[in-house]
């Protein structure tokens, strides 16, 4: 759905996006991660036909951003990081306005507006003036607006910024729901936990360069390298040293450390299964108090994937 090849965009001497290539498929939620000023919004604006790239190509649904702006606008919904609103309109009129702008027939408009209001849980606020809405409501209205013409691709620039925890959760479930509907969603944020919970793939960008793009699992696997499991032991007839020696006999275990009644087991490269370890521990006579595979967070992935990358 989105294909970017060697994209480059400069503002004066500042290279905002440098040789960026990525592709995003249907039903995918692509989390675009990077610090402020990394080039996320610039990339999105290029895709939304709001900025002309200096070089490279960008395609949305097979349409070139340089040539097919008008057709792209019909299949793409772009929500900027700041939602400007028309103060003189209420919620219903605001959505009708954009329904009309997207050339939705007058007789269909009412149904379309009602459906997006319902999807975004804004039906109760239908008659409220747009500028009287809270920040969370306005963000939801922004989502409703980008959905009005049933786009195949959604570009959401920091959709959760400034939202309270409840609104963030609601926004997350809304995006997940949209992905289930088969939309290709590119969502930018610098709040990693948020993206980690809703993205199926991520791209990490820093100073205009894409440092990583791929599935979330792959990113975690890269960070994890070799999986580690912490095993808490209760005092028992078998001393921990013997348990360690017994585990090391298995080729799937790379290393075992013992300290204060706790074992740190490192699996061999490429090994992800836990059941064999559990069985081996029980067979060695260990009394297991706890069994905790190490959880890798997106923050860890981000730190590991970006450390030293631009040095």
């Amino acid at each position: 759905m989105i294909e970017i090849r060697n994209l480059r965009k400069k503002f004066g001497s500042l290279v905002a996006v440098d040789d960026l290539s990525l592709s995003i498929g249907e039903g995918e939620v692509f989390g675009f991660i990077g610090p402020n000023g990394a080039g996320k919004s610039t990339t999105m604006k290029v895709l939304a036909c709001l900025l002309k790239p200096d070089s490279g190509s960008a395609k949305v649904c097979g349409l070139d951003v340089n040539k097919d702006g008008d057709r792209i606008r019909r299949v793409l919904g772009y929500m900027p990081d700041f939602l400007g609103v028309y103060e003189d309109l209420n919620v219903d009129e605001y959505l009708q306005f954009f329904a009309s702008a997207f050339r939705i027939e007058r007789r269909r408009r009412r149904a379309v507006v009602d459906s997006v209001l319902e999807l975004t849980d804004l039906t109760a606020k239908k008659r409220a003036p747009v500028d009287s809405l809270s920040r969370g409501m306005q963000q939801r209205l922004g989502i409703a607006r980008v959905l009005i013409h049933e786009p195949k691709v959604l570009l959401l620039d920091e959709p959760a910024s400034g939202l309270d925890p409840r609104a963030r959760i609601e926004m997350r479930s809304l995006i997940t729901e949209l992905a289930r509907m088969g939309k290709c969603i590119m969502v930018s944020s610098h709040i990693l936990t948020e993206l980690g919970e809703m993205s199926t793939s991520i791209g990490i960008i820093e100073r205009g360069k894409l440092l990583y793009a791929g599935s979330l699992d792959d990113a975690f696997a890269r960070v994890r390298g070799q999986e580690r499991i912490a095993v808490g032991l209760e005092a028992g007839p078998v001393p921990p040293e013997l348990i360690c020696a017994s585990l090391l006999k298995d080729a799937r275990v790379a290393r075992v450390d013992h300290q204060n009644g706790e074992l740190a087991v490192e699996l061999a490269a490429g090994e992800h299964g836990h059941h064999f370890l559990l069985e081996a521990l029980l067979a060695s006579g260990a009394r297991i108090a706890s069994f905790k595979p190490e959880v890798v967070k997106l923050e860890d992935a981000f730190l590991k994937l970006t450390t030293g990358a631009l040095q």
């Binding site: 939304a48 036909c49 709001l50 008008d70 606008r73 019909r74 793409l76 919904g77 772009y78 900027p80 700041f82 939602l83 400007g84 609103v85 028309y86 103060e87 954009f98 702008a101 997207f102 050339r103 607006r145």
Partner: peptide
């Protein structure tokens, strides 16, 4: 100034 122009530009108008 009210930052609505960008939104307007993403429509096919």
């Amino acid at each position: 100034e009210s930052r609505t122009l960008e939104t307007l530009l993403t429509t096919p108008l």
